[in-house]
């Protein structure tokens, strides 16, 4: 929540610069992606630690908070985008269909919704672990779509979206350690 406070403070004091809506849009988008990647790092962190004989419990505990944080910032990001465009709903739908980077970003957001809805304590029990786990693998799809959305939205310097994609690929690769570790 701290970044929200900082964002509001910056907005009120002019700290967001000459184009505050755009800056806020970029910052919330970046935070959403960063939190999502962090939430995806929890399981690999636990698995890595297990390889070295350490049993870490905290990654599993913070994972949900990080994931929900990502969803919150994604919602703020979309909200600011709509505000920036003047929120004409019809035009937004047109834009979403016409411009791949918006289509992809919107799809990532929509796919986050079932994950948020099944983040309650009893969700795992109600769905059954296997189904819950399968559903939450969607988070990788969301992160991949978000990285692509980031890549397409950048005018020239593709280093930051590339970094996000590399981190995502590394996290996926680390998960492969799971099986040999058993």
């Amino acid at each position: 929540m701290l970044p929200v406070a900082v964002l509001v403070y910056d907005a009120l004091t002019g700290g967001l610069g000459a184009n505050p809506l755009q800056r806020a849009e970029q910052q919330t988008g970046l935070l959403a992606l960063a939190l999502l990647l962090l939430s995806l790092a929890c399981t690999p962190a636990r698995l890595m630690a297990a390889r070295f004989g350490q049993r870490l419990l905290w990654p599993a505990r913070v994972r949900k908070t990080l994931g929900l944080g990502a969803a919150l910032y994604a919602a703020l990001h979309l909200g600011i985008y709509l505000l920036d465009r003047g929120a004409a709903p019809l035009q937004f739908l047109q834009d979403a269909l016409k411009r791949p980077y918006i289509t992809v970003g919107l799809l990532a957001f929509v796919l986050l919704i079932p994950l948020v809805l099944t983040s309650r304590k009893d969700s795992v029990r109600r769905l059954g672990f296997a189904r819950w786990q399968a559903l939450h693998r969607l988070s990788y799809v969301v992160a991949a779509l978000a990285a692509l959305h980031f890549w397409w939205s950048v005018k020239k310097d593709h280093t930051p979206p590339l970094m996000a994609a590399v981190v995502l690929a590394a996290l996926l690769a680390l998960r492969a350690l799971k099986k040999p570790a058993r």
Partner: peptide, 16 residues
């Protein structure tokens, strides 16, 4: 190709 050119933000203004 990636965004519309129909509107613009005049820096210092909130709407487009």
């Amino acid at each position: 190709p990636r965004w519309s050119q129909a509107t613009e933000r005049r820096i210092g203004e909130l709407g487009r």
